[in-house]
Design a binder for these strands. Structure first.
Lengths: 135, 135
DNA sequence: ATAAATAAGACTAAATTAGTCTGGTATAAA
DNA sequence: TTTATACCAGACTAATTTAGTCTTATTTAT
């Protein structure tokens, strides 16, 4: 249905929140969950993904939390989304350098090559839209 | 995950097939299913949707089938996809004229308005890509 | 009449996504 | 140095969505 997952939405919401609360102090997963009234555990996992993908920095222990690692103008939506949704593509069978053509209806479907072009354009939209733009 | 559904893929595949086999004769759902080795029933339903949405014309009875109603250059991917997937949007809570703001985390999420811009760009990509381009 | 085709919708199965739970580690502060 | 707070990681379950099947009806060329 070409819909973003909750994880992606939460990633955007969390990142936006951190970008706005740009005091020196780190933001906790709990604070984000409370402010947005969403599942703490899920946001927590999303934030962990963001950290693994170098979007955020985490601080453990009391007074711990998360801060953005880069400027909101330098964080693309595609970075945020790919962090929580590694295989972000409109159809499975797009040829890439790594993934060589594993389409279920292999060479008979013929729509995958043209769709790769569409994918590029979609990626461009999400690449060019920065966190700063959704604030 | 922002992936097209099989129904959308099948709609593209079927439309492409009809565009290529541009003889006067109608193409049957069975032929499309066989050629692409995909579920007959599903393609059949997809073709019915396309017909309801004025993409194709159907002919019932023996020697029946489907033909495209318009020129492949005048059929947008978004028409094809929306035929089988009426609520084609990256997130549920985008404000539109009809659907007034039914976001689960209502006005606290704040990402929906900016995402509406992203949605417009995505729509543009799928609008500007015509059936003729994926042949 | 009959066989081949579309039409429509109910139903089931499979896959994906969302959300929960558990146990662990790090660390500031009492 | 204990304790409370917060991150980390992965297994697990529940809910939702998507994919696919089945059934019945209608149309129409031969």
């Amino acid at each position: 249905m070409l819909k973003l997952s909750k994880k992606s939405e939460y990633a955007l919401m969390a990142a936006r929140y951190m970008a706005i609360k740009n005091h020196g102090t780190a933001v906790t997963a709990k604070e984000i969950a409370d402010q947005h009234q969403i599942s703490f555990e899920l946001v927590a996992k999303v934030l962990q993904s963001l950290t693994r993908n170098d979007i955020t920095v985490s601080f453990q222990g009391v007074k711990g939390g998360y801060t953005l690692k880069k400027n909101p103008l330098e964080i693309s939506l595609i970075d945020l989304i790919r962090s929580v949704e590694p295989d972000f593509q409109i159809t499975n069978c797009l040829k890439t350098d790594t993934n060589k053509n594993e389409c279920s209806h292999s060479d008979c479907c013929k729509i995958k090559d043209p769709l790769a072009e569409v994918q590029k354009k979609i990626d461009k939209v999400f690449y060019e839209t920065k966190l700063a733009h959704i604030i």
